[in-house]
Amino acid sequence: MSVRFAKSQIILHWLTLLMVILTYSAMLLSDWVPDDYFSLVKELHFHFGLSVFVLMLFRLYLRQRHAVPPITPALAPWQALGSTMFHWLLYLLFLSLPILGVLTLAYGGKQWMLLGWQVPQWVTPDSGMRNLVRSIHETLANSGYFIIGVHALAALYHHYLRGDDTLRRMMPGK
């Protein structure tokens, strides 16, 4: 068994991080741009978010095709379970946020484009439902800061304090 993730998994991991950064950045930037650019920045946020969704689907597919390389030295069983659960939390978060974003648009009754095509209205607009879905979307997105931060700190803990190969398994290179 390999001691590193497959090259495709490594590339998708870092590409997903880039898209997550761009998604969050676009939303944060929307408060600072002139009104003329607000809709462009929101559209970028939407499309970056959808790209995260697609990348996460590919990552799930690759996770089924490739075994997870073991951590050396091995983790205690409770740590391994916690690591697995936390990674699935990340997958769930970055799959659910784009879905909630799409539902926010749909319940808002707004016309929107996907890859240059007009998406038809497929749910009955409902401002109450829109506000609820948007609130959940924003709450989960805000919790994403914490979850991403814990993920990064855990990798650094494993690398610098525990001295295992957790971080090296996902780093680009040889």
Rank of each mutant, 00 (worst) to 15 (best):
153 L>C: 10
75 L>M: 11
30 S>Y: 01
157 Y>C: 03
110 K>P: 08
48 F>G: 09
105 L>C: 11
43 E>N: 09
49 G>H: 03
123 V>T: 06
171 M>E: 00
101 G>L: 03
131 N>R: 11
171 M>A: 05
84 T>M: 02
33 V>I: 03
153 L>Y: 12
30 S>G: 05
134 R>D: 15
98 P>R: 00
130 R>E: 15
42 K>G: 01
90 L>S: 05
146 F>P: 09
58 F>G: 08
122 W>K: 08
72 T>C: 09
126 D>P: 01
41 V>W: 01
159 H>C: 00
89 L>V: 11
168 R>T: 06
7 K>G: 02
61 Y>V: 08
86 F>C: 01
44 L>D: 05
29 L>M: 10
112 W>G: 09
169 R>F: 09
76 A>Y: 13
77 P>K: 10
163 G>V: 04
118 Q>T: 04
151 H>K: 15
42 K>D: 03
76 A>E: 15
73 P>E: 10
69 P>S: 00
67 A>R: 13
172 P>G: 00
61 Y>C: 10
12 L>S: 01
90 L>W: 10
90 L>N: 08
1 M>W: 10
127 S>V: 07
74 A>R: 14
57 L>P: 14
33 V>K: 05
56 M>H: 09
134 R>S: 15
107 Y>W: 05
43 E>V: 07
162 R>L: 14
107 Y>F: 15
146 F>I: 04
142 N>V: 02
95 L>S: 12
3 V>L: 13
148 I>P: 00
63 R>L: 05
40 L>K: 14
16 T>M: 06
167 L>S: 13
104 T>I: 02
136 I>G: 02
152 A>G: 10
135 S>I: 04
3 V>D: 11
16 T>V: 02
133 V>S: 12
159 H>M: 00
137 H>W: 01
75 L>Y: 11
102 V>E: 14
5 F>H: 15
73 P>K: 12
111 Q>W: 08
108 G>Q: 15
136 I>M: 12
29 L>F: 01
61 Y>M: 12
33 V>R: 07
99 I>A: 10
108 G>Y: 10
54 V>N: 09
87 H>N: 08
104 T>A: 14
170 M>Y: 05
122 W>E: 12
135 S>V: 04
